[in-house]
């Protein structure tokens, strides 16, 4: 027991022995431990940052952030070690603080863009390649940078959006979900059989590979309009293909309905004056449609309407 006490005392004496100026061996030892710990912690944290951001942000940005975090840890380590080495940074701190405030005022927007960029990287409302709409700009995300996000519009135009603006704006990401729905409104004549039209439409949808089987497409009579029976067609498609499916499907639906003898009527207004005998409607030259096609059976035979008037 006595020997142990002696050893500890001897140890303490050694640690208190001056090494250089006021710096003792104990101070030196503590400084070395802190420096090594700082180095290790900085290394580990930067690796963690790189791994967390891997696949989420561009490699350049994740490397930059990792370096930033590493130098931040180094700075904390230097501040922590300074008392042991009897380094007085207070003057430097004051000067640095003033410079920092000046720089802060001068680069307020830049800093807010930077912070917004970091937050966007973690929140990830959009990813590179996504099809988005933000602030009236629609297109594909080309790059998510530290300060700004770049978009390539559908017309191929380069648009740079500051991250602060991105962060505070409503973002619509059209492909964030794996599938999406789109609708068609199709009007058919009152003389047409809506059940038959629905069957024809469903057959066309069934044949399209990217019109998803589940969620099942929905086709129904949505409205009895002024000029047509309005059918609502709702189709789910993989998000990356929905526009192709939509453009492809609309024409196929029209063709299939025409083939089945079902047509899409033009808006029309038939006027009857008093007891005037109804005249068969005339078709504009070159329309290519017969009166039956344009007006449908019920409109071409308005006797019922006349009787109701009487």
């Amino acid at each position: 027991m006595a020997n142990n006490t002696t050893e500890i005392l001897v140890g303490n004496v050694f640690l208190d022995t001056p090494f250089f100026g006021e710096i003792t061996y104990g101070n030196l030892l503590a400084a070395i431990v802190i420096i090594i710990a700082t180095y290790v912690i900085a290394k580990v944290i930067s690796v963690v940052v790189m791994r967390v951001l891997a696949g989420k942000v561009e490699i350049n940005n994740s490397t930059f952030l990792a370096k930033l975090v590493r130098w931040g840890v180094y700075f904390i380590g230097i501040v922590a070690v300074s008392p042991f080495l009897h380094l007085d940074f207070s003057g430097l701190m004051v000067a640095g603080g003033i410079v920092a405030i000046a720089i802060g005022f001068a680069s307020q927007n830049t800093l807010s863009n930077f912070v917004a960029g970091v937050l966007l990287m973690f929140e990830r409302p959009v990813g590179v390649g996504d099809n988005i709409s933000v602030n009236g700009n629609e297109g594909y995300v080309e790059d998510i940078g530290i300060l700004s996000t770049t978009i390539r519009t559908y017309e191929g135009i380069f648009v740079r959006i500051p991250n602060e603006s991105m962060f505070s704006s409503n973002i619509t990401n059209y492909v964030a979900h794996i599938a999406r729905r789109f609708d068609f409104n199709i009007g058919i004549r009152y003389s047409d059989d809506a059940d038959k039209a629905i069957k024809v439409i469903k057959e066309v949808i069934e044949k399209h590979p990217y019109a998803l089987k589940s969620p099942a497409p929905s086709v129904y009579v949505d409205e009895l309009g002024n000029n047509s029976i309005n059918l609502k067609v709702r189709i789910w498609s993989p998000s990356g293909f929905w526009w192709d499916v939509r453009t492809d499907m609309l024409w196929k639906l029209f063709q299939a309905l025409r083939k089945a003898g079902i047509d899409i009527p033009f808006p029309q207004l038939t006027l009857w004056y008093g007891e005037e005998t109804p005249k068969p409607p005339k078709v504009t030259k070159g329309s290519g449609f017969s009166p039956q096609e344009v007006l449908g059976k019920s409109e071409a035979s308005p006797e019922n309407a006349v009787k109701e008037t009487k």
Partner: peptide, 16 residues
């Protein structure tokens, strides 16, 4: 065989 695709699960976390 003519292909047809579907969605297993919801649009937010399902798979095509």
């Amino acid at each position: 065989v003519y292909p047809k695709y579907s969605l297993y699960g919801g649009a937010n976390r399902g798979v095509v």
